[in-house]
Design a protein around this nucleic acid. Structure first.
Lengths: 339, 339
DNA sequence: ATGAAAGCGCTAACAG
DNA sequence: CTGTTAGCGCTTTCAT
């Protein structure tokens, strides 16, 4: 039932001006030690809490960082990246607010706009798989809100991005499959609107090509959980007259589903079909057989992206700071499912 | 580089007053169709976006709901609950901002205070496992910010809570173990600061008692990942002279780790030792053997908690609305690991 | 070192 | 239906 006190209240009680209180509270050098003491004491006595809305409105800046990710759950990657973001944000005195786009374009637009309107200091986005238009992002930037993309980027607009070397990661694991002697490698790719799908697909194809394999008969299924889910895709693969002896899935999440489906069809991994994923989700270590995958530096992506965003927020010359593309390395994890 | 326009800008251009613009934008009935048209047109022409800070400051309310959860990842439960929260929030025009306490008390306090200071309309909290003092929550309520606890509650303060029937869930799965003929059931409990640990522990003990079992020699290990992690706990159990023939873990997360450890020690589940978890995490269906567990209505918890919070936010008589304790039912999932 | 005054961008009586 | 006038609670010149 407590009244909510303002600087006014404490100014009155101390018989000084609002301005002085405001300064004292922010530890402004122009305030005497004694006044500061008095103010702080009174503040804690009244349990004063600064109204951040008012503060931000007046000072025209906030300590909020908005994060928009496709989904918070299921993908261990985002959770990890988020931790990285939060670590850095905290160190620099920012609070992060997280929004989910649920992989929906319209929802992403909504969230971004809501964040901009809430006058966040900056925004970190990992694009939804439906996103193929970037006006909302452009718009945010135009409205002086720095934006940094992480993990899922685009070349269509000028913007800082912190990504993973998806191409190389896919290339390496495909190559590993080839080295292991698998002759007929299928690829379950993701929606091609996603940069990561494209790059992983390309890495896959190039690895085949470079090994002198025909890429024309490489069996690729685009699997986006809408028109085609992993379960169905697996069935199709199993139904092929020339059944692949290895499957490279563009994500661990897919790989897990495929594994489940293979098992329930009595197909042995890796004896009958080898299986590889992408992400480095901890679950790949738990399933049987353990899944080979491409480990991503998820936490570090978050860290780098947040650091860059904060730099863009705090610079006084955005113009000459420009944009960066940072590509982080992956790490091939060879496990039971491909050996 | 775009200038950021305000209602003032559009008022000037249209030669009307700010108030009318403000009203038109909010679709106030007192504004003529034509003016509304003009205003909206001009607004979109200038790409006007309302400054929510100013709006909220003036109207003294926000459309933000803060959520504080121990951790966003790893526990599928929270992700699910969050989805439920977001669904309801969206339906009612609220935006949710999510904060992690990382299971740390101090971090929880920080997050709650930050949310209150940002003048969120209300807060949903699932307590950290370190939390045993509730001043920060009391404080938020005192400052007119409704708070609802979900999943992890407490009886120490008067507050609305949406919980799961942990006691009954634990009782039932323990009973199932007993029915299956397991004679020596161990329990890996969680930190006793957590209401859910206590209730699950009690459910376990009572089930034994009611079956006429001696509870004094029931082997219970309190396992909080700090003083004792699941791996170590498993080793201890395996080292027992009178080795248990079943283990009931207070969480699926624990159960998975135990399972891993049992396997790596060549112990067969359920032949040598049966294993059960709690939560209904999808991972329990993926591991081998599939884990018996107690399914929680995670999404629904989120839904109910959010609904209640919004009710408390929007009521004009908080006093007589009072608090509620809502206990949702669980569902026993019997699978391979206990049969 | 402190105060007075203006204003951030919006909403909300109150008039008319 | 529209305009005028005050604020919301804080920051920020500009004086003193």
């Amino acid at each position: 039932m407590g009244k909510v006190y303002t600087i006014h209240d404490i100014a009155i009680r101390l018989n000084i001006s609002k301005s002085t209180v405001s300064r004292a509270l922010r530890n402004h050098p122009d305030v005497s030690k004694e006044t500061k003491m008095l103010v702080h004491d009174m503040a804690s006595k009244l349990n004063y809490q600064k109204n951040i809305l008012a503060s931000n409105l007046a000072s025209k800046n906030t300590n909020l960082i908005g994060v928009v990710i496709p989904e918070i759950a299921r993908q261990h990657f985002f959770a990890q990246a988020l931790s990285g973001i939060q670590k850095v944000a905290k160190e620099h005195g920012y609070i992060v607010m997280v929004c989910q786009s649920n992989e929906e374009f319209l929802e992403e637009i909504n969230q971004v706009n809501a964040l901009v309107n809430s006058r966040v200091a900056g925004i970190l986005i990992s694009l939804s798989k439906e996103t193929n238009d970037y006006k909302h992002i452009q718009n945010a930037q135009d409205r002086q809100t720095p934006v940094v993309l992480f993990d899922r980027g685009t070349d269509k607009i000028e913007i800082s991005q912190v990504l993973v070397d998806d191409y190389k990661g896919a290339y390496e694991i495909t190559n590993h499959l080839i080295q292991q002697g698998y002759k007929n490698i299928a690829h379950l790719s993701g929606p091609m609107s996603l940069s990561i799908s494209q790059k992983r697909y390309k890495g896959f194809m190039d690895a085949l090509k470079d090994a002198g394999r025909s890429t024309t008969d490489a069996y690729v299924l685009q699997c986006d959980n809408l028109s085609l889910d992993a379960k169905e895709a697996t069935e199709r693969i199993l139904g092929l007259k020339k059944r692949p002896d290895a499957i490279f899935c563009m994500s661990d999440y897919m790989a897990i589903q495929v594994l489940k489906e293979l098992k329930s069809n009595g197909v042995k991994v890796p004896e009958d079909i080898a299986l590889a994923g992408f992400a480095g989700d901890p679950i790949t270590e738990i399933v049987e057989p353990q899944l080979s995958t491409v480990e991503q530096p998820a936490f570090d992506i978050g860290v780098q992206a947040a650091k860059r965003l904060i730099m863009e927020i705090e610079t006084d010359d955005r113009e000459t700071l420009g944009f960066i593309h940072k590509i982080l390395n992956t790490n091939l994890l060879v496990r039971e499912s491909t050996t």
